[in-house]
Structure formats: C-alpha cells, structure tokens
Amino acid sequence: MAGRFAGSADPVVLITGASAGIGAACARVFAAEGYRVSACSNDPIGGSKLQDELSAQRPGSARFHECDVRVPTQIAETVGATIGEFGRIDVLINNVGVSCAAKTADEFTLDEIDDQIKTNLLSCILTTRATLPHLRRSKGSIVNIGSVAGLVGHDRVSIYSATKGAIASFSKAVAIDEVHSGVRVNTVLPGNIVTESRRRLESSLDDPTELHNVIESWQWMGRSGTPEEVAHTCFFLASAKASFITGTELVVSGGAEIGSGPKQRTTVVDGHVIVTPTPV
C-alpha cells in the first residue's frame, strides 16, 4: 500500500510521543501500511521532520501536532485537529513515557513523582477518554505502551514501574468496557530497546561499549530490541489479524523477564559503568 496518495477513506492512527523512538517507528510502520498519521509530542523539531518525511512519501498523509500530554486541553485540541483534518480515528497508540534518574522510592521528589504519573499514566487515560467516541464509530483499536518494568519491577525505578503496571491494568478494564462497542484494547510491554536516548547515554560515557555490553547481556536473545520491532508488534495488535485479541499484554523483550540468572546493579559514575552484584 506504500507509495499511493492519501485518500479520505484511508484509516487514521493517532500516536503520542511520536517524534522519536518507538513512536516515530510506529508512525513509519503504519504509514507504510496505508494509514494516515496524526503524530503528537512536545518536540516540534523532531515532529516536523517526521511529518515532512512521511508527507514526502505520500502527500497529505501525515500531520504533526505539538502537544503536552500532561495538559488535558492540549490533548482535546490534538484529537479535535485530527478529526478536523482526517475525519476519523481508527487506531490510538498511547506511547509517550518518561522516567528519571535511578532512585529509591523515598529519594524521588514530589515533582518527579507527579511528572511521571501525569506523563505516563494520566496522559494515557485522558487521551483514551478523548479518543473513544471516535474509535467507537470506526470500531477501532487502542494499543498502549507499557513496559516490562511494570510487569516484573526494575531496580530503582519504582514510580516508573508503578505507572507502567497501571497502564496494563487500565487497558484490561477498558477492554472489558468497550468489547460491546467493537473497540479492542491491548498493551505492548517493551524491554530494553535501543532508542536515541539510549544511544546518547552510551555515547556520553568514556567507553560507550561498556554499558551497551552490560545491557545486551540482560536478554536471553543476547541483544536489545529495536523501535521497529515494537512498532510491528503494535501494528499487528491494531490490525484485523489480531481481531480476537483484546485485554492482553504482549511482551517484546528478547526474554529478559523469563528464567533465573545473576542479578546485579548497574550504575554510571563519572563516565564509567559500575556493576555491583547483589549482596547475599
């Protein structure tokens, strides 16, 4: 379907946090499958580049909206603009998410806790709420991006883990509510994915391969995933090929969360990776 001009009957996907990483990969995958793309994030530079890239391939197929998903009025404006431009919404990808420096639960400030809850969880709830009336009309699909951290917990990211675990629970409950309207709701749980932020962190170290090799060892498959691998999973769950799947959690992790093995804390100190085995 790639390469044809966007038409008014083409399905529409709305993606939050779409200017980079998994969100941008989702935009490219859905666009290649004939979707018109409504992308939003708080990064106007990255978002505009993505719009230009997709529009060059299929004129009229992509729109970027600058949106702070922590602000309900901006979410409503983005949804309204999407309907105004494209006339429908068939798929919602709640992708946006943020974590912060590794800390124990009592070390996080109230502002850090509030920001993670609003960005990761509240935005997912509010965007779903704003989009549902349109998804009911199209009998569409919601794919929420959770995390393996929300499934099994991770070292010193308790607030992030809490928000991502809540997303999976929210998805299941909405899946039950919407089953009679024909809207399916599922969650994708990525593990370690090589994104731009991961590359920036690694390149900031004295030995960029040091942290990279440690993280690669956390997966049974021996490597981290790519944003495109997550995006293709999202497309599958949103597509008719997953028509009998709702309320599920699909892990995309290379097996990081299964089996038993050595556990160790990894910390970056003065440009070096410090690996500390868990004391007995």
Rank of each mutant, 00 (worst) to 15 (best):
V37C: 07
V152R: 12
E228W: 00
D155M: 14
G261E: 05
D115M: 14
S8Y: 04
A105K: 11
G254V: 09
R58L: 09
D52Y: 10
D10K: 03
E66K: 07
A2G: 03
K118M: 15
E228S: 01
S158H: 02
E210T: 08
A62R: 01
E202W: 15
D10Y: 05
V71C: 08
A56T: 10
E77V: 12
P208T: 11
F235M: 12
G247S: 03
G46E: 02
T233Y: 04
A149E: 10
L201F: 04
S8Q: 14
V252K: 01
H180G: 00
T195K: 01
E85G: 08
V214A: 09
R199S: 07
A24E: 11
V214P: 00
T266H: 10
F30S: 03
D90S: 07
S181I: 07
E77Q: 15
F235S: 04
R28C: 14
S169N: 13
G84M: 10
I93S: 02
V183W: 00
S158Y: 01
L189Q: 08
G146E: 04
T187F: 03
N144V: 12
T246N: 01
T233V: 06
S239M: 11
P277I: 14
A32G: 09
D206V: 12
R156H: 13
R129I: 02
E85R: 10
G261D: 06
K103M: 11
E107A: 11
K164R: 14
G247C: 07
H154N: 14
V183Q: 01
R136P: 00
I22D: 00
E53I: 13
R156C: 13
L126Y: 12
L132D: 09
E228M: 02
F236M: 07
A56K: 14
H180T: 10
A76F: 10
N95E: 03
E202Q: 14
R36Y: 12
Y35Q: 11
N94V: 04
N192D: 12
F236T: 09
G191Y: 07
E196D: 15
I193H: 04
S181C: 08
S253H: 03
A238M: 04
A175F: 03
